[in-house]
């Protein structure tokens, strides 16, 4: 019997495969395609204290083996989440993790506190790395001091498992990871999207409404893998790896690099059932190589 279970702080996952925030809605959108009970967890859309309309259309540009988005954290706010969405997701047969974002440190702390009151939400993922908002977001995540200050405030307000999602748009991601570990984060997830740009040569204009966006998809995988490897060397808390995972082999590579779990994002757009295929594929990999537990391959490279 293969053992796929892993632990992130106090959070127990039946297997290491989760979905990345902003790519899987609230899970409900994918129930026609995926038995959510087969997943380790789902990280739902970034939630802020107040509702946000996000950036104007166009928000997406396809690039070579990747895509740029500048959605800008469109969401209906934490009150709406608690009143209307939570009742729909609280009994889903998997761990539901809420991605929390904000413009100010107080916003982050208050949103985290509100989510902490929801019994069926065992963890939050703190988004200090969104490249598509003017205030907050990535601004906190690109310096060790900024990242530490947000995590410190949220740690006081939130007692359950705290995952901090890191930005790759930095000089030394390991330094940021150490800073959030020192402030009591239970885990780090990386990478958020890489800031990029697309230009339409024929029309001589920017493709995205705000000019820049976050790059995701297979194009970013080598960068993500390198950063997961570096961070796993630098911290003791578990690392969640993401960035361009399309197949079980991709997921295994992240585990080998030191990730305890993975998140699957852009791949959900191409194959809405891809996450369950990745879970099965990891099992097949372990069996093929004679491992009995997924934990045996974490960080062996």
């Amino acid at each position: 019997m293969l053992d796929l279970a892993v632990k992130i702080g106090a959070l127990e996952l039946r297997n290491p495969v989760m979905t990345a925030s902003g790519t899987f809605g609230y899970g409900l959108e994918f129930q026609d395609f995926v038995d959510l009970g087969e997943l380790g967890g789902i990280v739902v859309k970034g939630t802020t204290l107040k509702p946000r309309e996000g950036n104007p259309y166009p928000r997406m540009a396809e690039t070579a083996s990747g895509m740029l988005n500048c959605v800008g954290l469109q969401n209906k706010g934490v009150d709406y989440f608690c009143e209307h969405i939570y009742p729909q997701v609280k009994d889903l047969p998997t761990n539901v993790i809420v991605n929390v974002s904000g413009s100010t440190i107080d916003d982050y702390a208050e949103t985290a506190r509100r989510i902490g009151e929801l019994e069926a939400i065992p963890a939050i993922e703190l988004n200090i790395s969104c490249p598509n908002v003017k205030q907050g977001g990535m601004a906190f995540g690109v310096t060790a001091a900024g990242a530490a200050s947000v995590v410190k405030a949220v740690r006081k307000a939130y007692g359950k498992t705290l995952i901090v999602k890191l930005s790759p748009n930095v000089t030394d991601i390991a330094e940021i990871a150490r800073a959030v570990e020192d402030e009591g984060a239970d885990s780090v997830s990386l990478i958020n999207t890489l800031m990029g740009m697309a230009i339409d040569a024929e029309r001589r204009r920017k493709v995205l409404s705000i000019g820049t966006g976050g790059l995701s998809g297979p194009a970013v995988k080598p960068v993500a893998l390198r950063m997961v490897y570096q961070v796993a060397q630098a911290v003791k808390i578990p690392v969640i790896g993401l960035g361009g995972i399309m197949t079980a082999t991709d997921a295994v590579e992240f585990l080998l690099a030191g990730a305890t779990a993975v998140e699957v994002g852009t791949a959900n757009f191409i194959d809405p059932a891809v996450t369950t295929k990745i879970v099965r594929g990891i099992g097949e990999y372990l069996a093929r190589h004679g491992f009995s537990s997924v934990r045996e391959i974490i960080g062996v490279v």
Partner: peptide, 23 residues
């Protein structure tokens, strides 16, 4: 026919603005 990624309401890339001010 807005440019789309997921097609199922998850990514919020293909939005259009309606008269109530929402995307």
């Amino acid at each position: 026919e807005n440019r789309m990624a997921c097609g199922v309401g998850a990514c919020l890339c293909c939005v259009t603005e309606t008269n109530d001010g929402h995307n």
